[in-house]
Design a protein around this nucleic acid. Structure first.
Lengths: 109, 109
DNA sequence: TTGACATGCAACAAAACTGTTGCCTATTCT
DNA sequence: AGAATAGGCAACAGTTTTGTTGCATGTCAA
């Protein structure tokens, strides 16, 4: 686990896909058709975006009859927060202080 | 502020750039030359990656003589954690419980 | 000043990404 | 069964991204 982190980052890189996640978060379990509404692109394009989200495990789907329901899975986002962002958060102030020091050191010298 | 969030997401999308950030975090204030070491690509390619990181405000630079020092700026990452990830973290358990319920509802019905 | 070093800039090619069109399958409803 | 609905698949084109090569600029050191 964690080797798919790259897929998650890539999936989150496109605003269209972040919008899809937002919409699922607001209203979970939507069909492809629903997710296509107001998405200025064809159904097929939306399908591809959802496929990437699914491959990144950010979205889980269930087939119900002829429709496909899409559910948000926030776990990968959680993992990124845990394993990657917190790494940077921890040292945030330290790094900023360091940067400030270097900048002043430069101004002084 | 925050309108550049897209640039940050896009900058974080490439593993090469995340490596550069990791290296700066481990050893802040490196020159371009240093950052090129072990980066299986030409100096010019690394330059472009750094340019994107800089445009996303993830890296700040200072020119010192003929060298250019690169410093990590974790602020944008912090902002993403605050404004975007926490949004999903908050509802994580709720959404997962919801998903589980839906899946069982389907199995039952 | 001359040579070496650190970096900048631009044109080009290959690869990846995004969206479109066209057609096909499966399910539901009458 | 037949029509309408929901979605899948694949080829293609336009755009963006990424990396290379070649050359230019600026700085340091002797």
């Amino acid at each position: 686990m964690g080797g798919d982190q790259d897929k998650v980052f890539k999936a989150l890189a496109a605003p269209e896909r972040r919008v899809l996640l937002d919409r699922l978060r607001a209203n979970n379990g939507q069909t492809l058709g629903q997710l296509c509404q107001d998405m200025e692109m064809t159904r097929q394009a939306v399908t591809r975006h959802l496929k990437l989200l699914e491959e990144a495990n950010l979205v889980a789907t269930i087939r119900r009859g002829r429709e496909k329901l899409h559910y948000l899975n926030p776990m990968p986002i959680h993992e990124i927060a845990e394993r990657w962002i917190s790494k940077y958060e921890r040292g945030r102030l330290r790094v900023l202080a360091e940067l400030k020091a270097k900048l002043e050191e430069k101004t002084d010298g």
